[in-house]
Amino acid sequence: MNSTDRLAQLSAAGVSIWLDDLSRERLESGNLAELIRDRHVVGVTTNPTIFANALSKGESYDPQLRELVARGADTDAAVREFTTTDVRNAADLFRDVYTATNGVDGRVSIEVDPRLARDTDKTVAEAKDLWKTVDRPNLLVKIPATEEGLPAITRTLAEGISVNVTLIFSVERYRAVIDAFFAGLEQAKANGHDLRGIHSVASFFVSRVDAEVDKRLAAIGTDEATALRGEAAIANARLAYSAFEELFSSERWQALVKEGANPQRPLWASTGVKDPSYSDTRYVDQLVVSGVVNTMPEKTIDAVADHAEITGDTVTGTGEQAKAVFDKLSAAGVDITDVFLTLENEGVEKFEKSWTELLDTVTGQLEKAKGGAAE
């Protein structure tokens, strides 16, 4: 089987393949267009770490940098211009996919400033500003699923803005996200918005769960604990899908469907393998089910194309088995509640750190460009 067949099979199984990366170089070199054409890529996700990496490399941003210096832009304004320009151009590149899928795919995500993750009002204001600035119907604004983010999700959807809910780790929090989604659509309808134009995904982080749980299992060190290595992340995602099936068959959801609502699709994020002893496609081929998104680094897309075993649905009907994994983890001494709290806090901190690095990089570039302009 050649690589195109494996990615085609994944797509045919109902999994939307999104790229977890974006840069000016990808856009200008034609790389992203090639991935759309040849690799079945139908969307893009970004985060502060991705932009920090993109802006620290190469010279692709230099022309816009010189223009910003000439206008006297400060660091925050420059970061906003760089990131929204890339996202807008990517959204234009995906416009045909967006049209062909009636708005389901062809989506490009941009994240609110992660420093606002614990501030509901500022998150909503930032989401509205990003939506207005990018000004593309196939945008998804990313809002973290912190406790403060939940009401921000509802209020943003109520404005008719499509949302990618990010940094979801626990099924309990995922249920709260779905509730926030339902409430947002109900308010959007009351506000006069056409629900058919509002889309959302819920980004459930996968590999980080194994990384944290495996570390704790190693510290426990018993035979029972060791036997559970690598079991948590896939079981967690499968439990999330069970919750999705349950809540999206409820009377509350059916009432929204009658108003034209689109379901909030589960999205598997953090699908690059952290432990090199694991198969590098495990967070793809073991989480195949129709109607989900899998957003992957290009390295993972290449691995899937090369050697993934796509055998059809590997999720439906696995809820009880997945629950048994967590019963065993608890019995072995893993504090599951603390795992998810730790992962959420670390996730916010990592994105804050990346954002600070992004600001520092752009500040340095602006100063350098000003120096060059003064010579």
Results as ranks from 00 to 15, higher is better:
residue 29 S to D: 07
residue 115 R to K: 09
residue 55 L to H: 01
residue 13 A to T: 03
residue 321 Q to G: 12
residue 368 K to F: 15
residue 189 K to L: 15
residue 58 G to V: 01
residue 127 A to R: 01
residue 274 K to E: 11
residue 287 L to C: 12
residue 305 A to W: 10
residue 90 A to Y: 00
residue 66 R to G: 15
residue 216 R to H: 00
residue 118 R to Y: 13
residue 26 R to K: 13
residue 374 A to S: 12
residue 176 A to L: 13
residue 305 A to I: 11
residue 183 A to D: 14
residue 32 L to E: 11
residue 268 W to N: 07
residue 146 T to H: 03
residue 243 A to D: 01
residue 121 D to A: 13
residue 67 E to L: 10
residue 249 S to P: 14
residue 140 L to E: 06
residue 295 T to K: 06
residue 326 F to Y: 14
residue 219 A to V: 04
residue 293 V to P: 04
residue 301 I to C: 00
residue 241 Y to L: 04
residue 15 V to N: 05
residue 319 G to H: 13
residue 171 V to H: 01
residue 284 V to I: 11
residue 137 P to W: 07
residue 116 L to M: 03
residue 374 A to E: 11
residue 4 T to N: 10
residue 262 N to R: 10
residue 225 A to L: 07
residue 308 A to P: 09
residue 364 G to C: 00
residue 286 Q to N: 08
residue 52 A to K: 09
residue 342 T to P: 06
residue 294 N to T: 15
residue 291 G to N: 07
residue 209 V to Y: 12
residue 121 D to K: 03
residue 14 G to D: 12
residue 311 T to I: 15
residue 162 S to W: 01
residue 199 H to L: 01
residue 367 E to K: 15
residue 107 R to T: 13
residue 28 E to V: 15
residue 7 L to E: 02
residue 245 E to W: 06
residue 296 M to I: 12
residue 55 L to C: 00
residue 329 L to I: 13
residue 278 Y to W: 09
residue 11 S to L: 00
residue 362 V to S: 10
residue 106 G to F: 08
residue 92 D to C: 06
residue 145 A to K: 01
residue 172 E to D: 07
residue 194 D to Y: 01
residue 204 F to D: 09
residue 333 G to R: 01
residue 287 L to Q: 06
residue 317 G to M: 02
residue 282 R to P: 03
residue 93 L to P: 08
residue 331 A to Y: 05
residue 149 G to R: 02
residue 293 V to C: 14
residue 120 T to P: 08
residue 152 A to G: 05
residue 254 Q to H: 10
residue 41 V to Y: 10
residue 159 E to Y: 01
residue 5 D to L: 11
residue 38 D to E: 15
residue 317 G to Q: 14
residue 260 G to Q: 03
residue 289 V to F: 08
residue 291 G to L: 07
residue 190 A to E: 11
residue 178 I to N: 10
residue 22 L to T: 07
residue 166 T to E: 06
residue 138 N to I: 09
residue 133 T to Y: 05
residue 236 N to M: 03
residue 6 R to V: 07
residue 283 Y to E: 08
residue 309 E to G: 10
residue 52 A to W: 02
residue 113 D to Q: 02
residue 188 A to D: 11
residue 136 R to C: 00
residue 198 I to W: 06
residue 124 V to H: 08
residue 193 H to Y: 04
residue 315 V to I: 09
residue 10 L to N: 00
residue 206 V to F: 08
residue 40 H to R: 15
residue 56 S to Y: 04
residue 220 I to S: 12
residue 339 V to T: 01
residue 149 G to M: 05
residue 155 R to I: 12
residue 308 A to W: 02
